[in-house]
Lab assay of single mutants.
Amino acid sequence: SPEEIKAKALDLLNKKLHRANKFGQDQADIDSLQRQINRVEKFGVDLNSKLAEELGLV
C-alpha cells in the first residue's frame, strides 16, 4: 500500500541521514537527504525514482 511504501522510504532515508551526520558527509548531501524526506512526507514515493529502485519496488 502507499502508506507502507512511504513508511519504508522514510525509514531508509532517515537511516541515510543519520549515517551522513555520524560520518560527517558534505552539508550538501545532508541537505539533499532532508529534501528527499520532506518530498516523501508530502507526496509519497514516485515509482519511477531511484528511491523506488532502492526499495525494490521497480
Rank of each mutant, 00 (worst) to 15 (best):
S1H: 09
D46K: 07
E54S: 06
L12P: 00
L51W: 06
A7V: 10
E3L: 09
S32A: 15
D11Y: 10
L55K: 00
L17D: 00
Q25R: 13
G56L: 05
K15F: 05
V58P: 07
L47A: 07
D31G: 04
A52V: 03
E4D: 11
Q25K: 13
L51F: 07
I5C: 06
K16F: 05
L55D: 01
P2A: 13
E4R: 07
N21P: 02
P2N: 13
L13M: 02
I5P: 02
E41V: 10
G56Q: 06
R19Q: 14
E53Y: 12
R35H: 12
V45R: 00
K6I: 08
E53H: 11
A28G: 12
L17R: 01
A28P: 04
K50R: 08
I30L: 07
Q36F: 06
E4G: 09
F43A: 03
K8S: 05
K22F: 10
L13Q: 00
Q27D: 05
K22M: 14
E3Y: 06
L17Y: 04
I37Q: 02
I37A: 02
Q25A: 15
S49L: 02
S1F: 11
A28C: 13
D29V: 15
L10V: 03
G56H: 05
D29K: 15
A20P: 03
G24K: 08
N38Y: 10
K42R: 12
L51H: 02
N48D: 10
N38Q: 11
G56R: 04
Q25C: 15
I37P: 00
E3R: 06
E41Y: 09
F23L: 14
D11V: 09
Q25E: 11
H18P: 01
V45G: 01
N21Y: 14
Q34P: 01
K6C: 04
S32Q: 12
I30D: 02
S49M: 04
L47C: 06
D26K: 10
S49I: 02
G24T: 07
G44P: 01
K15E: 12
D29T: 15
D29A: 14
R19D: 15
V58T: 14
I5H: 08
S49N: 03
A9Y: 05
Q36T: 08
K42E: 13
K16P: 00
Q36A: 09
G24S: 09
A9F: 05
L13Y: 00
E41F: 07
G56M: 08
L33C: 02
S1Q: 07
N48Y: 09
L51Q: 02
K22H: 11
Q36P: 01
A20N: 02
N14K: 15
V58S: 13
G24Q: 08
N14D: 04
Q27A: 10
K15R: 13
K16H: 04
